[in-house]
Amino acid sequence: MNLRHHALAVLKETSRTFYIPISILPAGLLEAVASAYLCMRAIDEVEDHPDLDTVTKARILRQISLNLQGMGEKSTPEAFANGLATYKGILPEVSLRVGEWALLAPESIAPRIWDATAAMADRMAYWSERNWLIETEADLDQYTFSVAGAVGLLLSDLWAWFDGTETNRSQAIGFGRGLQAVNIVRNHREDQRRGVSFFPQGWEVKDMHRYARYNLSLADQYTKSLPAGPALNFCRIPLTLAYGTLDVLALGKEKLSRNDVMALVNQATR
């Protein structure tokens, strides 16, 4: 099995939201977006790890960042994973194989993905050391940019690299923030059980719904401005699922069912 097939297999195991839109992308763009997603999922699994303390998380994240910053055209997967062997058996496969995901992207765009992932890992290390303390809406904006708004900017760069598609970068940030805010609402109870809350002080669930819907309105504008093509096909799916998730959460359900997901995907791809 080649690296592309390995990546898609791991992607399918880790994300039902993004596997479908990534898997339908054309060659070249598929490898670039899959590389970006898996690299960022690799560091996300460190940030969310239930058995690592915040100091250890920050140390691992900064090591991954430094590894990415030291890469070049002759780098090997092992170089990207420098310092991670200590955590074999603790970190999941997607994190330990970050070097393979980093090298999946086409050579002409790979350094942009490495840069974005390195910067995100550093920001995650900061938030880990802060124990994800979010006191104000400004803090929330900073966090959601750190882990998601910046992904919107990277996607805009990937669309432009692939076929010259131009996008509104402010709306791209809203796209990422909106998806992240939906995740925050969905995972709120689970986060509370591990002693973390991404809600600013005094906020209730309805306030986070408002925040999510505002940013999803920017995502709407972003998506509607895209020309017919792979970027539009990609963005429609997670945006439709985000709205669907908010709707079921508002009804008191925990998440979309598998049937709900498939129905929404069919709706987004018609």
Rank of each mutant, 00 (worst) to 15 (best):
L264A: 09
D260H: 15
L239H: 14
V151S: 11
V98K: 01
R194D: 00
D44R: 06
P200Q: 06
L179H: 10
A118M: 01
N259G: 15
D115C: 03
T86H: 11
A160W: 10
L11K: 12
F145I: 10
L61E: 03
A148Q: 11
A242K: 05
C235R: 06
Q201I: 12
R41H: 02
K88T: 12
H6P: 00
M120L: 02
A85D: 15
E254Q: 09
I22R: 06
A118Q: 02
G195S: 01
R194K: 11
T245P: 14
A81M: 07
E78C: 03
A181M: 15
G89K: 05
L104A: 06
T14P: 00
P200A: 05
A58F: 01
F145Q: 08
W101A: 10
L91F: 14
L246M: 15
A105T: 04
D122Q: 02
P230C: 05
H49E: 08
L155T: 00
A212L: 02
A242Q: 12
V151P: 04
W114G: 02
G178A: 10
A242W: 06
L179P: 12
G70V: 05
I43M: 13
L68V: 05
D157V: 03
N67I: 08
L30I: 02
V205Y: 04
D220A: 07
N215R: 14
A268G: 08
D122E: 14
V205R: 13
V147S: 11
V10C: 07
D247Q: 15
T54C: 00
W161P: 07
N67M: 08
K224Q: 15
Q142D: 15
I237M: 09
L52P: 07
E135I: 03
W161F: 10
I22D: 03
N233V: 03
L264W: 07
F18I: 08
P50A: 00
E47P: 01
T54V: 01
W132R: 14
K255A: 11
Y222E: 06
P230D: 03
L226T: 14
A268R: 07
I24S: 04
L3E: 12
T269A: 03
H6Y: 10
A105G: 04
F198M: 13
Q180G: 05
L133A: 06
W127Q: 01
D220Q: 10
V261F: 12
K224F: 13
L241Y: 05
K206R: 15
D191H: 07
G252A: 13
F175K: 06
E137T: 10
A42S: 15
S225T: 13
L91D: 13
G195I: 01
V182I: 13
F162P: 04
N67H: 13
G229I: 08
A102P: 03
L91A: 12
L140A: 14
W127K: 03
V10W: 08
N67F: 10
R112L: 08
R41I: 05
M120V: 00
E13F: 00
G244V: 09
Y222A: 05
R213I: 00
Y222H: 15
G174V: 08
L246P: 04
A119I: 08
S23V: 11
T54W: 05
G72P: 02
F198Q: 09
G229M: 10
